[in-house]
């Protein structure tokens, strides 16, 4: 079974919101109709987004770290939002594990959004149906796009490659490898929802340089080999010219 997902690297996310805007742009222009904004040009602009980037400060000043935290539907493997839907509008695709809402069936009762512990669903106040991240399902299988672009819009937009897309049930996918080798974890594991999306933790980036590394013979730049002045020793050139 396939379970498509995102792995988000909190170690490199710089909180630029490029994923937020590219998500909004792609998903407001698709066949499902616009993702509405309410009062976009007024005092309190608000609207429906699939993806948000939040910022947290860890520690006490001055010893603090800033963590930017992109947040969208995690396409849970055991999604509590699906069984509660009275109409069957919310469903999880068997073939790739994406959790979707059928906007033509949804009655806008909001029950699914109550049943998502992550607050990943947002109602569209104008279409009056529930909306959430689709993992850009309308890109993933679009044969008219070049293969390299058959990825979620946010993944393509991220300037730091903080978003890794792939099948987490395929042990060899980039996503699975990142989870396995870089300590990928799930959000709120206490509810047993088994989020498919994972997050990679912050890491300390330290550079250890030993003295022998600077002077070793295979130093690629030969930096330490530069001679101070011209040599007076007779060399092969003196004989040739």
């Amino acid at each position: 079974m396939t379970q498509l997902a995102l792995v988000i690297d909190l170690n490199v996310c710089v909180g630029c919101h490029a994923c937020v805007t590219s998500c909004k742009e792609w998903n407001t222009s698709g066949v499902a109709g616009p993702l509405f904004d309410d009062n976009p040009y007024d005092a309190n602009p608000t609207g429906t987004f699939f993806n948000r980037v939040q910022t947290f400060e860890i520690g006490t000043f001055p010893k603090t770290e800033t963590v930017h935290f992109p947040k969208s539907c995690l396409h849970c493997e055991d999604p509590p939002c699906v069984p509660v839907c009275p109409t069957g509008a919310s469903y999880k695709r068997r073939e790739d594990g994406i959790v979707l809402v059928d906007y033509d069936k949804c009655i806008g009762c909001k029950y699914c959004s109550w049943a998502c512990p992550y607050g990943a669903r947002e109602i569209d106040e104008q279409q009056r149906v529930m909306k959430k991240c689709t993992l850009c399902v309308d890109r993933l299988y679009d044969a008219s796009l070049p293969e390299s672009e058959r990825k979620p819009s946010c993944v393509l937009a991220c300037p730091t490659q903080a978003r890794i897309y792939g099948d987490i049930h395929d042990a060899d996918s980039a996503a699975s490898m990142a989870i396995r080798e870089r300590g990928g974890y799930q959000l709120m594991p206490e509810w047993g929802t088994q989020p498919a999306n994972h997050y990679l933790p912050r890491r300390k980036t330290e550079l250890h340089i030993h003295a022998d590394e600077l002077v070793r013979s295979d130093n690629p730049l030969k930096k330490e080999d530069i001679r101070k002045g011209p040599s007076r020793e007779v060399n092969l050139d003196d004989w040739m010219f």
Binding site: T46, T48, Q54, E57, Y199
Partner: peptide, 22 residues
């Protein structure tokens, strides 16, 4: 557990929008 960071001091600095949302 919500953001998966093991530290006792975590404070939100921004929720990602200013005009509120659903």
């Amino acid at each position: 557990s919500a953001i998966g960071i093991r530290h006792s001091q975590i404070a939100q600095k921004s929720m990602g929008m200013m005009g509120g949302s659903y």
